[in-house]
Design a protein around this nucleic acid. Structure first.
Lengths: 157, 157
DNA sequence: TCTGAACCTTCCCATCATAGGAAGGTCAAC
DNA sequence: GTTGACCTTCCTATGATGGGAAGGTTCAGA
């Protein structure tokens, strides 16, 4: 089986299959006389394993460990579970951070009229580093407005 | 003001300030006779703006646009709001994907006893690509177990 | 038997934001 | 004047993936 066929069958691009081979995540493929790589059923299994793990967001380094456990008849499911749980925590943490940013920005956007005037709490917040003003509470302490968009004259010497 | 002082004052590392200058996100800093970069208040404002935008997860390219709007007296807050809302949607989408992965993996991990035996629904799922088995429903159709972890003998020619 | 399309090979480069480090020059305090 | 903290530029790396060039292979059809 060609690398292209293996790619279609496994859902891993040919480009990535070669890459995984180059970093030792999959063993060097057999070669035909032409130099073409040749794949069999067990290769497809391994590639499928990798793809499913990627779909769950595992890094290639962790997948390397998981592949090792897969191939270890004496493995402990506690080891696998520990890796999975650590990964779940990381995923949740990353999601939490993204949601935090989204919430902060959402409240800034909500405070912006979007009526075409230059006045904008989003810009104001980026300038001052403050969070979204509840609505339009205080008269805003004169934002330092654009610091000369493209500076030329600066303190020489 | 030195780049190091500017870095401490703005919360942007000296390394990144130089990088931002090299990609034109900040104007070339003034130089002293020694060749040292020299920063003033308006530079710090710009760096602070960038840092706050980064904290909200904006890409440098979008920050470039935001900086342009900041410096544009005739800007429309509708433009700023549109960028912010597009970004919020992206953040939420990314968070959703991460949570989806976390949920899938969490249910796999929950289905794993973690009692030290090799038997493991997480590994099994990575092999077959199936989702978490509700608990231990069916006898599992003989997972194809490790495909010879490091292949040597393969279909030559 | 030739031809052309579709495939394969290796090798290099790009992405995105950030950091590390080497080699060498500058500043300031002692 | 020496020392240590700073600065300069330039090169490299990360992680996962893709793009593309230059050239060889395969196979079907004329």
């Amino acid at each position: 089986m060609n690398i292209g066929q293996a790619a279609r069958a496994s859902g891993v691009s040919a480009k990535m299959i070669r890459h995984y081979e180059s970093i030792g995540l999959v063993p060097p493929a057999g070669r035909r006389d032409s130099g073409y790589r040749d794949y069999g059923a067990s290769d497809l299994h391994r590639l499928g394993f990798i793809r499913h793990a990627r779909d769950l967001g595992f890094s290639l380094e962790r997948i390397r460990v998981l592949l090792g456990l897969w191939g270890d008849p004496g493995r402990s499911n506690a080891d696998v579970k520990a890796i999975a749980e650590a990964h779940v925590r990381e995923l949740e943490e990353r999601a939490r951070q993204l949601n935090e940013m989204a919430d902060a920005l959402r409240s800034l956007a909500d405070a912006c009229d979007g009526d075409g005037r230059p006045d904008c709490p989003i810009i104001a917040s980026l300038v001052t580093g403050t969070d979204a003003p509840a609505c339009h509470p205080n008269p805003a302490p004169a934002t330092p407005e654009p610091p000369a968009p493209r500076g030329k004259a600066r303190t020489k010497r």
